[in-house]
Structure formats: C-alpha cells, structure tokens
C-alpha cells in the first residue's frame, strides 16, 4: 500500500504536479473539472482542478480556479520543467450537473460551461484530449499515476475505471 502514501492531494481551484512516481488525486469533482497533463518521456504529470470557466477582469489572484487561466498557468509551469506539448497526453473529467431545478433551466449549468471552455482553451493551446469522462450527474474522484500516466476515475455507484 506504499503507493497511497505518496498521494498528492489537489484542492479546489488548485494544481499539483509530480515526477517519476506517486499519484496525484482530486476528490469529488462535481461541476468542477479535473484536467491531467502527462508527458510520458520525462514522466511529468500534473492535475488541475478548476471550478469556473473564465477568469474575467477581476483581480482574483488564483489562476487555478478558472479553466482559461488555470490551463495556461499549468502549461507555463510544466514547460519550465521540460514538458513538451507535442508529447503531452491530456485527459479531463467532471462537469456534472449536481442539481436540477425545474423551471430554472440555467441553474447548475456551470458544469457544461466548464467543459466547453476547458475544451476550447486546450484546442487553442494545440492540445488534443486523449480521453474524457464528463457531464452526467455523478461526482467523480480523479487519480493520475505519475509513474505510468494512467488516469483512474471513481464515481458514485460505478466501478472504478481507467480513462
């Protein structure tokens, strides 16, 4: 069970990266989105947990809360550590709709908007999404194994699965 000791926890609106071994994990993604970046050549992996689509003009100090600013800041950091975009495998999970209120169709749509913006920003950055588990109504926990690059998803009432 030594592998669990090395789990690196990513909070809400946060990003963590690791190299060579261990796991990076973020728990209970609801409408939030987890984005993993993995460069297999140098075994460098990052997990980003964003909660909102666009940063906007506000003076918010934390870029990782937002899809657009968060992805760009993550890429900037990883590039410094030797990541090459052309080798990088990207996977995304989350964006669920937690609550449905009849008569208020736009309530809880944040998940869909998050998915849209994450995909758009990744496309603008020239990154292809290798696999995704998005939408639906279930919260998900996302693991990235930095040794192998495999991504595991745990969701309510479903068996664990690899992306």
């Amino acid at each position: 069970m030594t592998m669990f000791d090395k789990d690196l926890k990513v909070g809400i609106g946060d990003m963590k990266f690791a190299r060579n071994e261990g796991r990076v994990v973020t728990y209970a993604l609801g409408s939030c989105i987890g984005v993993t970046f993995y460069d297999p050549m140098i075994r460098l992996g990052a997990l980003l947990h964003v909660m909102l689509p666009n940063k906007g003009a506000g003076g918010d100090q934390n870029p990782f809360k937002y899809a657009d600013a968060g992805i760009r800041e993550t890429l900037r950091k990883l590039t410094v550590f030797g990541m090459m975009k052309s080798r990088t495998v990207v996977k995304i999970a989350g964006g669920a709709k937690m609550f449905e209120i009849s008569g208020k169709a736009d309530f809880g749509n944040i998940g869909q908007r998050n998915i849209m913006v994450v995909k758009q920003v990744l496309r603008e950055e020239g990154l292809r999404i290798a696999a995704e588990d998005t939408g639906g109504v279930c919260a998900r926990t996302m693991f990235l194994d930095v040794g192998t690059g495999s991504v595991m998803i745990r969701a309510v009432g479903k068996p664990e699965r690899y992306l």
Binding site: M98, F99, R140, V156
Partner: peptide
C-alpha cells in the same frame, strides 16, 4: 421547488461555491 441528489459530499458542497 426542491431539487434532490445522492452524490459525493465534496461535489455537493462545491455547488454554492461555484
């Protein structure tokens, strides 16, 4: 009208946050 879910605690709590 009320809305209901059975889900992970963490995911539910992020609803008011978002």
């Amino acid at each position: 009208v009320p809305s209901f879910t059975i889900n992970m605690l963490g995911g539910i709590l992020t609803v008011p946050m978002t």
